[in-house]
Design a protein around this nucleic acid. Sequence first.
DNA 1: TCAATAGTGTCTATTAGACAGTATACC
DNA 2: GGTATACTGTCTAATAGACACTATTGA
Lengths: 305, 305
Amino acid sequence: MDKLNKDGLTEAQFLANYNADKYKKPAVTVDMLVFTIGNRSSRSIRKLPDKKLKILMVKRRNHPYIDQWALPGGFVDLDEGLKDAAKRELAEETGIDVDREEIYMEQLYTWGDVERDPRMRVISVSYISLVDSERIELCPGDDAGEACWFELQNRTVSEEKKIIDGGYILKRTIELKLENEDQMLSSLMMITRTVRGSSKKVEKKILNSDGIAFDHSFIIEYGLERLKNKIEYTDIAFNLMPEYFTLTELQKVYEIILGKKLLKANFRRKIEEMVIDTGRVRKYAAHRPAKLYMFNPEWDKSILE
Amino acid sequence: MDKLNKDGLTEAQFLANYNADKYKKPAVTVDMLVFTIGNRSSRSIRKLPDKKLKILMVKRRNHPYIDQWALPGGFVDLDEGLKDAAKRELAEETGIDVDREEIYMEQLYTWGDVERDPRMRVISVSYISLVDSERIELCPGDDAGEACWFELQNRTVSEEKKIIDGGYILKRTIELKLENEDQMLSSLMMITRTVRGSSKKVEKKILNSDGIAFDHSFIIEYGLERLKNKIEYTDIAFNLMPEYFTLTELQKVYEIILGKKLLKANFRRKIEEMVIDTGRVRKYAAHRPAKLYMFNPEWDKSILE
DNA sequence: TCAATAGTGTCTATTAGACAGTATACC
DNA sequence: GGTATACTGTCTAATAGACACTATTGA
């Protein structure tokens, strides 16, 4: 175990002499996508409240993108793990404590385009979190000016498919809208997918960004896509729910994320094994009370992260 | 558009004065998992060649982990994208040119444990590539000593599930084996999954590593898992195939990655729409010739990366 | 009574799994 | 003919989608 390298050094000697600053390094940040399902004010006493998918954004107080809105996040310290950094930044900027609240968190993607930050080269590792907004109180710290929930919507504005030799080019324009009582942010993105034979290329471009800092609209869009995918075959949706919930409430959450209506009977069949009947009921208003369920921790599919 | 920050600076002034070296930065590397399906020497003239899943490793020529094997990869330059860095390092260390060969490449995960590199804090962005080994010639450059394919196998050695209050703890021990003509590397890992109510935690530990550098056995294991998942619902498997192939060859690839036998009739039904009959046949030996197919570029499911 | 939601039964279409059979090369 | 692989047909089970029906509350 005392091998020498080509300079005749043992490992201990090598490490003692190692100059960590030999090369210039990029900065590393973490960004957090925090999704929740929020209530919209109810239209009638008899109807159930209207629900919306929301995302947490923080107002930038300095250049670049001053006064625009960004995902909570910041620089990674040398002595903290990536996930820990994301938790710390979230706590600093919004007051949300991932560990105390036992909040779901998953790595999303790492963004490393050379020009994504005008200050310097910045590589950003993004994470997704899902929270039950009822349980979370926002109390933005000094670090960021404000932290706010924004109602989130994305839609395909246009799509064009051109057939080329041995494949095709697909151009899709996607509009992202973030909205709350007094703000409305938006972004237009174009995703170009080139398929020729077995080779594929995806290119993304921001055509227009109104109030959303950096390349964060890409990150949000990507996170939405991931959410849409994973809700179909995992139990992540339950992280958006309170401990006890009705099946109709759960179905609403699925519908909002998937962006389409589901049939009640089929939905119930599908999630049957993921929930446990608690025996209790919730009385909303002038209609039949709904049974309250909770997540079934026995339900499981994989050991994957 | 000439907003001032709290110090009274415009964006241009702020950027001109920005000190990118205010904080210490972690180093950022990329690591490449290059998978292929390789031939094993055939046992009999009449039988089809035996196929194996292989991964590309590079021998370390310096501390730390000198003389052990690592994934191809290295430090990211300030002026190159993450994917570009991965391509460059792969080319330098193994001679494989991702762009020229139109090789499939996908971001896997970003590893950022504080202690994962004894030299300094290193964050590593990992990528998966799938190649047809017939088309690839290895010619390792100066950067790394040797680049070699290793036959890859992973198996669950033991599994233990303990029921706890409101959930369970699952401990799984996984053995990873990398083998070629003159080397045999291995690693024992333990994955502990704690589920309590709706909160889940995963912890990974390397119990024993023989010849595999850094935390690369985690990365390999994670990549294998991803491969196994994605082969079921995407077309990635075709990246492991030559342009023309028989359905039996394709099925073998699926079987190797999934680690189980498939029924021929069902397999063919499943991949029917992903392939095109070329009209040509391949004559192997003393049995019925097989039709040659190619990938159908029309087949598609999503626009996701 | 009825508006509004909660909850169930069942038919059908699609997909996945199992298995048995036929076809075709060359030794 | 025999061996080894190529390819097909069909039965069955499981899953997903559609729709119609019944149940229960308080205004």
